[in-house]
């Protein structure tokens, strides 16, 4: 039964993974990737790790892939067209890496004998059924592996702060400034109340930036009057 489930889920995972790479429509690739994640969750279940299986679906299939699908839908990415390969040497490297991977797999299979499903050290399986339970994962994370766990969370926090810093505009905006997505062309009269009729063009993405370019930083904003 377990072998049958393993073959079924592993086949599903590999098939979806191949489909993900081969598909030309990015949304189909995303759906295939969701299939991979669900098949992996099933594999975790057969390995007696229900907590990991649930988290796999919640985090990867439920959160990250929703964002990916969201972005694909928002940008309306068209189907990829046939283009001549730009970096030809990548093919050679890919074949080399694939050969190494297959070599490793063959090496492991050779030294494990004929039954790859049996664990190497039978004595280590004593309480294998408890390893995947929620309580033992929690205890492990907050006692033995506390430091790696905390470091990982700090790393994620750094990633969030970094993304915020990269996405933020340079300099602070006044509450009265107008922010328009993308760059725009403003006339001088929209920025300086005293220069009505002056249509000098300034390109910027906010009114504050345009004012800085024109040297009008101290002048009260039109909307403040």
């Amino acid at each position: 039964m377990t072998t049958f489930l393993f073959v079924l889920l592993a086949g599903l995972a590999i098939g979806s993974a191949i489909a993900m790479v081969v598909q030309r429509n990015p949304l189909y690739s995303a759906i295939s990737l969701i299939g991979v994640f669900i098949a992996l969750a099933g594999l975790y279940l057969t390995l007696a790790a229900p907590f990991l299986a649930a988290i796999q679906i919640i985090v990867y299939a439920g959160a990250i892939m929703v964002l990916v699908v969201f972005v694909i839908m928002l940008l309306n990415v068209e189907e990829e067209e046939h283009k001549p390969l730009r970096m030809g040497y990548l093919t050679v490297i890919a074949i080399l890496l694939a050969a190494i991977l297959f070599g490793e797999a063959g090496f492991i299979l050779y030294f494990m004998g004929n039954s790859p499903l049996e664990p190497l050290n039978p004595n280590a399986v004593g309480n294998a059924s408890n390893v995947g339970l929620t309580a033992s994962i929690g205890t492990g994370l907050f006692t033995t592996y506390l430091l790696p766990f905390e470091i990982t969370s700090v790393l994620l926090l750094m990633a969030i702060v970094g993304a915020m810093t990269l996405a933020r505009r340079v300099g602070l905006l006044r509450p009265t400034d107008l922010v328009v997505p993308g760059s725009q062309v403003l006339t001088r009269q929209t920025l300086d109340p005293k220069a009505i009729g002056d249509a000098t063009e300034v390109e910027s993405s906010t009114t504050a930036e345009a004012a800085r370019v024109l040297g009008l930083e101290g002048v009260p904003h039109r909307r403040e009057e």
């Binding site: 669900i38 969750a41 229900p50 907590f51 299986a53 649930a54 988290i55 679906i57 919640i58 299939a61 439920g62 959160a63 929703v66 339970l133 929620t134």
Partner: peptide, 13 residues
């Protein structure tokens, strides 16, 4: 063991 997480996982799908 994890029926609450199961509910959350299926809802997120």
């Amino acid at each position: 063991d994890v029926s609450l997480l199961y509910v959350l996982a299926i809802t997120s799908i």
